[in-house]
């Protein structure tokens, strides 16, 4: 057996708390979920320690032969959640990208102030902030009052409990996750490169396409991933602002654990979600490795 040098021992010692922490609090639960997803649900919650293959089949729509019919309802829910997450990503990006350029050109004290403003919502509870949106969006809320007092509309708009309200809420919640990485890539963009491109004859649009966008792409991609993943599992916004009229994959997991008392199926849905996210991230990583210049 080979012995460690004192440096290696030191390194091990230094790394072990982090490794232990990750191992216990991240990989441990993940492993439990993975194992549970192959077990039979207990009648009153919990699991029976028998191998059970119906869980994954059920996600794809197969019935387990008890009261059920073939139905791809769970895939529909997953796709719908992914669709909402994608819309959230696109809208936050469309907002954050230009704003990041705008802020990066401000004087430094205004810059800090604006970044503080954008990060400010992190300091209060998401639930409280969503309640504020209910006050804004409901029929007798501020948005309708303002529009009506301006004479733009005569009847209140049906904003609350609508798809629009859900997207507003999602975008609002996830803007900081998109803004910060995008801003940092924009801030790190050397203005000389933009000058160089113009100097070499590129129009502003060509400069954007060939220099600015590829150079800020890593920040954009990080932002998209940082928004997409939590947005996929988010069900609080659709529930509070959308009136829970549609089920999100996150609701479904919650429902399995707490209403249906089917822990293994809840674990299975979680595993499917994790695999789905890993796929999305690895598609990007593989592309990035194959073609590191994004040109």
């Amino acid at each position: 057996m080979r012995s460690f040098t004192s440096q290696q021992k030191q390194l091990l010692l230094l790394l072990s708390p982090a490794t232990l922490f990750l191992g216990i609090f991240f990989l441990g639960p993940l492993l439990i979920m993975a194992v549970y997803s192959f077990l039979e649900p207990g009648l009153y919650g919990g699991v029976e320690w028998n191998f059970y293959h119906w869980n994954y089949g059920r996600v794809l729509g197969w019935a387990d032969g008890f009261y059920e019919e073939f139905d791809i309802v769970y895939l529909q829910i997953l796709l719908r959640s992914a669709g909402l997450a994608l819309v959230t990503v696109l809208v936050t990006l469309a907002f954050c990208y230009p704003v990041a350029f705008w802020i990066s050109r401000m004087q430094s004290r205004w810059k800090s102030f604006c970044i503080f403003l954008i990060a400010l919502p992190f300091f209060s509870s998401m639930i409280i902030r969503l309640y504020a949106w209910i006050l804004i969006l409901r029929d007798s809320g501020f948005a309708n009052q303002i529009l009506m007092s301006l004479g733009i509309i005569s009847e209140p708009l049906d904003l609350m409990y609508s798809g629009t309200a859900v997207i507003i809420g999602m975008v609002y919640i996830f803007i900081p996750f998109m803004f910060l990485p995008v801003y940092s890539s924009v801030e790190n963009l050397d203005p000389k490169l933009i000058k160089a491109s113009q100097d070499l004859g590129a129009t502003p649009f060509t400069t954007f396409r060939r220099v600015i966008f590829p150079m800020t792409l890593p920040g954009v991609v990080s932002g998209c991933i940082l928004v997409f993943i939590p947005a996929l599992g988010n069900f609080v916004v659709p529930a509070m602002l959308g009136g829970a009229k549609v089920v999100m994959i996150g609701n479904l997991v919650e429902q399995q654990f707490l209403a249906a008392r089917n822990w293994p199926f809840g674990a299975t849905l979680s595993m499917v979600m994790i695999v789905f996210m890993l796929l999305v991230v690895s598609v990007y990583l593989i592309r990035a490795m194959k073609n590191p210049q994004h040109s």
Binding site: L193, K195, A196, D199, G201, P204, T207, P214, Q293, S295
Partner: peptide, 22 residues
């Protein structure tokens, strides 16, 4: 004329090469 229409080119201090291009 805007910069991209001027018949002059610049060699920048610290070069300003595009790092994402070969």
């Amino acid at each position: 004329s805007p910069p991209h229409r001027r018949p002059v080119n610049t060699v920048f201090q610290s070069y300003a090469l595009f790092p994402h291009l070969n």
